[in-house]
Design a protein around this nucleic acid. Structure first.
Length: 484
RNA sequence: GGUCCUAUGGUCUAGUGGUUAGGACGCCGCCCUCUCACGGCGGUAACAGGGGUUCGAAUCCCCUUAGGACUACCA
């Protein structure tokens, strides 16, 4: 059975690229009937925080992909946080040292840094000198007595090819000559990520490692560890990076890079999933809109592209718009309410007491939005007492001769109304047409502009209903007084 | 600098030796319509360059160029 995992380090938010990696892992597990595991790789004590871990897990949950084993849900390989697994790593480190495959190194960071700078200035690739490779017991004791806390380095063999048969990249070859003896345990006694992953993946019986391409260069080091420990080497699948508009690795500079931010902007998780699935993977036919379940059936590593992908917000918007229009209106209403409240257009109580009104508002504008927060821009037209003429075109509309009488008649009709509902408004336009002779554009546009100041907008009948009798009357008065 | 990865329209991609190079986003036009949006229809636009291999290359090989990742007691 296939077993895959997503192993984020809790040093920030869930990056959009991380979300895609998690998704691919999830889809692969579902497709193959395997298990998906989530484990927290918090070996970096300086950068890892519990807040970050929470944020990442919350984002993962919102994203809608659940895991079979791992953090929070538990499983046969607890604990799922590497800082709590230190006792597990220790014997493996000891084994490597005992077998001479790893050794203690007492070089100070300053020393190493100096060496690095030197080789860099000479234009050479830096590799650890191997100074501490063959320290005698005697020498070690002396250094220990000085109170130096050593790191543990892996003894990298000479001139050995390392071949990765990558599921997406094909055969990739490295040579150990390009790798210096690297650190596997830091001086604080915590193993480094490269070591912890290997032990964790082995113990958790991970069969396929699907992760970002940035890990490809580290894979030979990990393979060395697998071999030294006598572990089976899993399959690897390195997925290309997601790039920003300028074709560099997507980062804060490129706008929203965390899934949290997309949640806040009002993107739907299914839409983000659909979009991210298409970023680097392609289905067989021409269809592009898929539910999670459909993706689970269709996904395969063979169809994952090798080339990096630029994150295209326009396409995300398009897909999200489709999902917004497809969703039950109630859901979109629920999602819209916080944005409308935040904009100050409604209160929580109002939303509770006037569900019908808010539903009409949302269904009036949802055709026009690509993410929920945009509804605020469109709803703006309903609030405030003044009518602001948006442009010359709108001003022109009001200059037409028949506008004054049209607005007078409109006022009269509305004034007599008890309540402006859809049916009444429909009839109102018929009556207006009868009384003034204006029809089509000449009928609707002046009303639209007089009431909203805009020449474009959503369904006028709905706008009028949403405005309500009092506001309509107020706005007609305002327009007649100030804009004619 | 070194190692590695990548290269089809502006963007995401299909394509695995013979296709009018297909789809999607965007953009443009038309239809629908009071308008915008939605929707429908149509259009614009690509094989980075140079060498090979082959009867025949987007497809296989090499070089160049361009981009990217890694090169930490980060992941």
């Amino acid at each position: 059975m296939e077993r895959v995992r997503f192993a984020p380090s809790p040093t920030g938010h869930l990056h959009i690229g991380g979300a895609r990696t998690a998704l691919f892992n999830y889809l692969y597990a579902k497709r193959t009937g395997g298990k998906f595991i989530v484990r927290i790789e918090d070996t970096d004590l300086n950068r890892s925080t519990t807040e970050s871990e929470k944020v990442i897990i919350d984002s993962l949950k919102w994203f809608g992909i659940n895991w079979d084993e791992g953090i929070e849900v538990g499983g046969p390989d607890e604990p799922y946080r590497s800082t709590e697994r230190n006792f597990i790593y220790e014997p493996y480190v000891k084994k490597l040292i005992d077998e001479g495959k790893a050794y203690y190194c007492y070089c100070s960071e300053e020393e190493i840094e100096k060496e690095r700078q030197e080789s860099l200035s000479k234009g050479e690739t830096y590799k650890y000198s191997g100074k501490c490779r063959n320290l005698t017991e005697e020498e070690r004791k002396k250094l220990e007595e000085k109170g130096i806390k050593p790191v543990v380095r892996f003894r990298v063999p000479d001139n050995e090819p390392i071949i990765i048969d990558d599921a997406v990249r094909g055969r990739v070859e490295f040579n150990t000559n390009d790798i210096g003896d690297f650190i596997i345990v830091k001086s604080d006694g915590i193993p480094v990520y490269n070591f912890a992953v290997v032990v964790d993946d082995h113990l958790m019986k991970i069969t396929t490692v699907i992760r970002g391409e940035e890990h490809l260069s580290n894979t030979p080091r990990q393979i060395l560890i697998y071999k030294a420990l006598g572990f089976d080497i899993p399959k690897f699948a390195h997925v290309s990076l997601i790039l920003g508009k300028d074709r560099t690795k997507m980062s804060k500079r490129h706008g929203s890079t965390w899934v949290e931010q997309y949640e806040q902007a009002g993107y739907l998780p299914e839409a983000l999933i659909n979009f991210l699935a298409l970023l680097g993977w392609s289905p067989e036919g021409d269809e592009e809109i898929f539910t999670l379940e459909e993706l689970c059936e269709k996904f395969s590593l063979e169809r994952v592209a090798k080339n990096p992908a630029v994150f295209d917000i326009d396409k995300l918007n398009h897909i999200n718009g489709i999902y917004i229009r497809k969703s039950p209106i109630e859901r979109i209403v629920d999602l819209s309410i916080p944005h409308l409240i935040k904009a100050g257009y409604i209160t929580e109580e109002f939303a509770k007491d006037n569900r019908q009104y808010v539903t009409l508002l949302v269904s009036t504008f949802r055709e026009k939005i690509s993410h929920i927060s945009e509804i605020v821009n469109h709803a703006a037209v309903l609030f405030g007492d003044e009518v602001k003429i948006e442009n010359e075109e709108a001003a022109e509309v009001l200059k037409q001769e028949h506008v004054v009488s049209l607005l007078d008649e409109l006022y009269a009709i509305v004034n007599e109304a008890e309540k402006l509902d859809n049916e009444f408004i429909q009839n109102m336009f018929k009556e207006l047409k009868n009384r003034t002779g204006a029809k089509g554009k000449a009928l609707f546009m002046p009303v639209r502009v007089a009431l909203t100041g805009q020449v474009h907008g959503a369904e006028l009948v709905n706008i009028i209903e949403l405005l309500g009798k009092d506001n309509v009357l107020k706005r007609i008065e305002y327009t007649k007084k100030n804009l004619l």
